[in-house]
Amino acid sequence: MKKWKVISPLVFIVLWQVLASAGALGKGVPSPVQVVQGLYQLTVTGFPPGYKLLGDILSSLARVLLGFGIAVVLAVPIGILMGWSSWFDVVLDPIVEALRPIPPLAWLPFALVWFGLGYLSAAFVIFLGVFFPVVLNTVAGARSVDPYLEEAARTLGADRRTILLKVIVPGSLPSIFTGVRIGIGVGWMTLVAAELIGVKNGYGLGYMIMNAGEVARFDYVVGGMVVIGLIGFLMDRAIKYAEKRLLKWR
């Protein structure tokens, strides 16, 4: 089984190369070799020249982590309270449910007005993408905590605060992790679009992809896609690893 983990991406790349070389993928769709060359140029020269790939990666990473971090820090307590207390649920649920279906990108013009072109506007859009899956999963997690555990804690002398922190929060963690993993994926998805309005420092993977696409440098475009995919994959693995360590009781 394990060998397929290596074989399937390899087959994919070889197939891609063959089809691209044969021109079967359409005009301008770069082959893996061209993408690697493009990535090399992005790394040493950059696009536009001087704006190198590392800067794009770091800037995008900062935007994603900022938006993601704020989203998780807000969504987890809100979700816990909504899942645990029916009062919070009654008050917050209509607001959350009304805001949730709005695509984060619809907020772009306001992001610009409220946060300008800096890191914050992109982080805000990413925040919107991450916040809702984390809230919903946290709510589900808090609701799924076995009521017997709460009762056991009460008979052992726990007050409401202790129950919240020592029963509901740890009991919600598995669902919170699910939400966080979905959220980080959505975060990267919204990043490219979030950088479309512009970035003040001139760096960003989404920003680079947009600019390269406009001058038909599709080797750079796909190179940027590959980098985003790779970072997304690594972050997912990191969260999975943290989950394994933190939730080894499962």
């Binding site: 009762e151 009991g171 963690l173 009781w249």
Partner: peptide, 26 residues
């Protein structure tokens, strides 16, 4: 409820995220 009346439930109600020792120290 209060700790002077200890309860044992049919479904054990152990905290799954705590070790045996930490369940007892709770």
């Amino acid at each position: 409820p209060g700790p002077e009346r200890g309860m044992v439930f049919q479904e054990y109600a152990l905290f799954p995220w705590r070790t045996v020792l930490k369940n007892v120290t709770f």
